[in-house]
Amino acid sequence: MTQQTAESPARKQRAQLKVRTLRTDRWWLAPALTFAGLTFFLIYGFWAIFDKSYFVEPYIAPFSSPCLTTACPEGARLFGWAPIGDWFTLPPGLIILGLPAGFRFTCYYYRKSYYRSFWLSPPACAVGEPHKKYTGETRLPLVIQNVHRYFFYGAILIGAILSYDAVLALIHKPAGLGTWILLVNAALIVLYTLSCHSCRHITAGRLNHFSKHPLRYRAWTFVSKLNAKHMQLAWASLFSVMIADFYVRMVAKGVITFPFA
């Protein structure tokens, strides 16, 4: 027995609307602000890497911590340790910046923000993207985004070091404004790191039976709460790290000189 199905009335195609979007709100505002914010950060970061005033007792600028070469002043080295030795003459920040940079670059939130604001894929919801072809994260190079969790491990390390730096500053200069800036920054960086989607997956997201792992479930619940604020933490920590870094450099350069600096 053969069966026919209904034929379509006319040639079936999408509504032939020639405009890219019919949105009437200011949909371009969010990607524009994101673009500005991220660009500013990149420019600052580029400057900071090559800036040499990254240390002033007891502060070390977050962009240059930990300092692992003999080029760093004694106090700036992590545990007074310089494993890289003296052959490395480029700015010391370059060695370690890959970890936090990679973490942020592959972060699920930042991916969203730069795919939207830089790559316009899409610039906003229901606004056409300019590209003819799209393969997403299915092939090289973007398939590499899947390494995010390894950067997360690295970021945990960096978060710990920045906290250590802040605690050292607290011991040596508890009344310093810089100390408190470093402390707030370290807290935001750690919270941002813990709110990561990979972290959420590792704590218990990968399990199907929460009830059999009560401790991991509690950790997951905590991380999930942070995770809901991942975007806010991403921006807060982005600005806090810039502010902290800039502040330390200004103190190191002698621009900021008041007694409790």
Partner: peptide, 11 residues
């Protein structure tokens, strides 16, 4: 099913 195509832009 193309999970890799998703670029998590959250629309």
């Amino acid at each position: 099913h193309g999970l890799g195509y998703c670029n998590i832009t959250k629309c």
